[in-house]
Computed example of a mutant assay.
Amino acid sequence: MTPLPRIMIEPLVRAALLEDLGRAGDITADAVIPEDTTARVAFVAREAGVIAGLDCTAIAFLLLDSTLTLDVRIPDGKTVAPGDVIATIEGRARPILSAERVALNFLGQLSGVATATSGIVTAIAHTRAKLACTRKTIPGLRALQKYAVRCGGGANHRFGLDDAVLIKDNHIAIAGGVGIAVRRARQSVGHLVKIECEVETLDQLTEALDAGADAVLLDNMDLAALQNAVTIIGGKAIAEASGRITPETAPAIAETGVDLISAGWLTHSARVLDIGLDFMT
């Protein structure tokens, strides 16, 4: 995986460390561990999954002590089995202990996103559909979570309100209809900006296509409606399905012929991957 630039990651990790260190630093490590004590520890997978977030982990340690040595054995985007050593870190014990929780928080959360993504990607691999995330991310962590989705084999939807038009149900209700909303967007944005419109019925779908939408978000449609929608679209726009996407439901949804499946829970509710930090003798 191509890593994110350090300048994007460091402020987030620095803020997490400052939150944890509080007003007096790590009073436990400072009291219990002699200053010159060294240690070697390993990040060990407690369960199977896909790794993401090792750059965050490295920065967490190095911000507290730039002399620490990190050895990555299983990089981002690769799978792990229970007991696998993901990385080791060696050097002064105090900063290792002080950065431990922040490092594990990032690594576990982002690996959880990557693992959840990989599960659905695998489930729909026999189709042409791709899995995409959404803007339903933990505040402040969007770039990291979307990176984790890529580590799991998924694709990224828009990153923010400014990089694509996505006309949703409330836009439609306030604007007065699908057609008028899409036409207004087409008149307003530049030629490089894509326009997607959420639709809940086949009549709305036809209206969106007639108005020139580049993509349509088929929201919470059943399988029969999705199949009809794909036929109506006929390649004139990108077909994206959303709603009730799980590893169990995704295959049948993908088999309807949609181009994309999007799931918000990949980033806002993915279960943390269980990873521990073990002392090595």
Rank of each mutant, 00 (worst) to 15 (best):
A81H: 12
C151L: 05
C133N: 09
A60H: 02
I245K: 01
L273D: 00
G179H: 04
D214F: 03
N220H: 07
I59F: 05
I74C: 04
F43Y: 11
L110T: 00
A114S: 05
A87K: 00
A123W: 03
R128Y: 08
A116P: 01
A81M: 13
I89C: 08
G235Y: 13
P251L: 08
A213P: 03
A229Q: 02
R184Q: 14
R135Y: 04
I27V: 15
V44Q: 07
V41N: 04
A148C: 06
R158Q: 06
D20R: 09
A99I: 04
K194T: 09
D65C: 10
A148L: 04
A42Q: 09
D259Y: 05
A208C: 08
L266F: 02
I33D: 09
L217C: 07
V258Q: 01
G257N: 09
L68I: 05
A45V: 04
R46A: 14
D210Y: 09
M221Q: 05
S98H: 05
E35H: 13
C133L: 07
L226C: 11
I180C: 13
A263Y: 01
C56D: 05
L70A: 07
I261G: 00
A241S: 10
L218Y: 03
L62W: 10
V182R: 01
V13M: 04
A15H: 12
R94F: 07
V272P: 00
L131Q: 01
P34V: 11
T2E: 15
R40D: 12
A87I: 01
L64H: 03
T37I: 10
A103C: 11
S98C: 09
V182Q: 01
C151Y: 00
R101C: 08
T122M: 10
R40C: 15
I180R: 13
S118C: 14
I27S: 15
L54T: 03
I7N: 15
T79H: 13
G119C: 11
T134P: 02
I245D: 00
